[in-house]
Write a protein that binds this DNA or RNA. Structure first.
Lengths: 138, 138
DNA sequence: AAAGATTGATTGGTCAATCTTG
DNA sequence: CAAGATTGACCAATCAATCTTT
């Protein structure tokens, strides 16, 4: 039940913080984060959708908006579409990251019994793995 | 990170199951559940919104739809509005519950290391309590 | 035809403004 | 006026249908 409460509360609260501090949705932040972690700051849509836990359709809409804001660029190459983080996008991500990490710390990590973050990770890792395995790939 | 993955995946998957098996959203299910647990199957909007982790506005929209489907009724009493589960609503809930519980078991509980469900609850309880305490009451 | 990606319609949620009752 | 509740405009996610490149 606590897990379900978290699942209900957390997304909304994280969204609010990101929106008011950086004008980004959680999902948009995840897109920028993944691109920034990648050597060429570039990924094909399909990989990006897997890395962000989102459907291709959701990603496509989201990337269109991010491109309109100048935070990413798209180019076609073969049967795939590559998305690249722009300088402006990188700046937006770097500006948003500390506040967001801090918010997660404030909302979650600080309230775990001391020293149990690793235990929590160990419990949830197999669940996350399973969900990732059966998630709808649309 | 596993927790964040859960928070991304779970809601969508639970919604899908509920929608296809019972034509209900997660939040609507929560509304029916709470009303069903209550002696007179009746609660004022404000209490119901707290019990379902939702804003008053969200609840209001949601209850309007549920009423249109005959699953709940509303009546005004003093400064408050009371929502009551109808027979039809109770049936819908009872029909949906086993499948939903089963889905949670299948997605989450079965993949926790055996005997650790209690540990997980112990870790997350203070976090859930904190989030409940600072959740926006709009 | 298949894989990758996009689009458009619909719908649920959020936010801010508003209504209603005590 | 304050508390409880509703409304409407807007935005993002979902779903199904479609387009494009190999």
């Amino acid at each position: 039940m606590s897990l379900l409460a978290l699942v209900e509360y957390l997304p909304g609260m994280l969204d609010q913080q990101l929106k008011s501090d950086a004008d980004l949705r959680r999902f948009e932040y995840a897109v920028l984060l993944r691109l920034n972690r990648t050597p060429e700051r570039t990924l094909p849509m399909l990989n990006l959708s897997a890395a962000t836990f989102g459907s291709l359709s959701r990603l496509s809409h989201s990337v269109r908006r991010l491109e309109a804001r100048g935070l990413v660029e798209r180019r076609r190459k073969g049967g795939s579409r590559y998305v690249t983080l722009t300088h402006e996008g990188r700046h937006a991500f770097l500006a948003a990251a500390p506040g967001h990490v801090q918010e997660i710390r404030r909302l979650v990590l600080e309230h775990l019994p001391p020293g149990t973050a690793g235990d929590l990770a160990a419990l949830l890792a197999p669940v996350a793995k399973h969900l990732g395995g059966i998630a709808p790939r649309n």
